[in-house]
């Protein structure tokens, strides 16, 4: 089985709103697949349809070879899910939550205990295993939810913004764990608002906007498709009038970021020349000058038209 996720014309409507509009894509075994889009684009709705939490109105999704609508239990048995808004049971301890999940997946007790132990240990929760989740911090809860999603040793994991609102250490820990998955032949489907994270983690990303897929490719390739977004970062030894700088040739758009300027262009060579000219004429020293490729964030903004 090459494709662990196959989606055809998947559609979900809420009243008049088409939250997800005939989307099509495939995810290969061993991939980390990022699903990006602005707020309300339909990411969570898609993920819920793929994990059998809500029913699609049209189209089909094949998960690990099973039609998620018709053979939900078989598909669910081998996937892990970290929903966007979900909680562990706060009246139970971390350990009890893990055991409950194991029971729901029909995992033998001994296996479940070993797995819970190593997962909780890996996510630095083992020493708190007998404490009620009520007293956990947000980061601890989120790490527990990841443990709960992995209790069945899934071969395909869906995560809806797993690192949102977490501190650097927790984010890194979760990222490290996810990065190990492809080596074990496991596949990850991930939504995030963090472009940096998507860029570093994902083999491929899909960008969804207003329920439709706007682009789907490897991050580097996506960046190449929006060539005109080449830019130069420049800074001078004194402050410079933004207006006069923006009037030199080959600048399409100029942005001030702190003590630096970002100048967008379709002619990098021409812009460098006019920048050095500008500096000479005004008696300025150039402190830094970097050419920059478009970031995934800029590609994203370009494709989704978000300001």
């Amino acid at each position: 089985m090459k494709h662990v996720i196959q989606v055809q014309n998947l559609t979900k409507r809420y009243g008049k709103l088409t939250a997800v509009d005939h989307i099509n894509f495939e995810v290969e075994k061993g991939e980390i697949f990022g699903f990006l889009g602005p707020n309300g684009a339909g990411k969570t709705t898609t993920l819920r349809m793929l994990t059998g939490i809500i029913q699609a109105d049209e189209g089909a999704a094949n998960i690990l070879g099973f039609n998620i609508q018709k053979e939900a239990l078989k598909a669910k048995q081998n996937i892990g899910v970290v929903p966007e808004t979900s909680n562990a049971y706060v009246d139970l301890s971390a350990w009890q939550n893990m055991m409950l999940m194991s029971e729901l997946y029909g995992i033998p007790r001994k296996v479940a205990e070993d797995r819970a132990e190593s997962l909780l240990d890996r996510l630095s929760l083992y020493h708190r295993r007998d404490d009620k989740v009520k007293g956990f911090s947000k980061g601890m809860k989120q790490r527990l939810i990841l443990c709960m999603a992995l209790v069945n040793d899934p071969i395909l994991v869906f995560l809806d913004e797993p690192t949102s609102g977490l501190d650097v250490a927790s984010r890194q820990l979760i990222r490290e764990i996810l990065q190990e998955f492809p080596e074990q032949g496991k596949t990850i489907f991930l939504t995030t608002h963090n472009m940096n994270e998507a860029n570093r983690l994902c083999d491929r990303v899909a960008i969804i906007n207003q329920g439709k897929i706007a682009a789907i490719d490897r991050p580097e390739k996506l960046k190449n498709t929006v060539k005109k977004l080449k830019s130069i970062e420049v800074s001078f030894d004194r402050s410079v009038n933004t207006q006069s700088l923006s009037e030199i040739s080959h600048i399409k758009e100029l942005k001030k970021e702190g003590d630096k300027f970002i100048a967008y262009t379709d002619n990098v060579n021409g812009l460098i020349h006019s920048l050095t000219n500008f500096a000479g004429l005004n008696g300025l020293k150039i402190v830094t000058l970097n050419t920059r490729d478009p970031s995934l964030e800029e590609v994203f903004v370009e494709l989704t038209g978000e300001a």
Binding site: R48, I53, A72, Q77, T85, S86, M101, L104
Partner: peptide, 14 residues
């Protein structure tokens, strides 16, 4: 209401 339901129905139980 306490958002444990989504987690529960993502499990392989009918």
């Amino acid at each position: 209401q306490v958002q444990t339901l989504e987690r529960l129905i993502s499990a392989p139980i009918s």
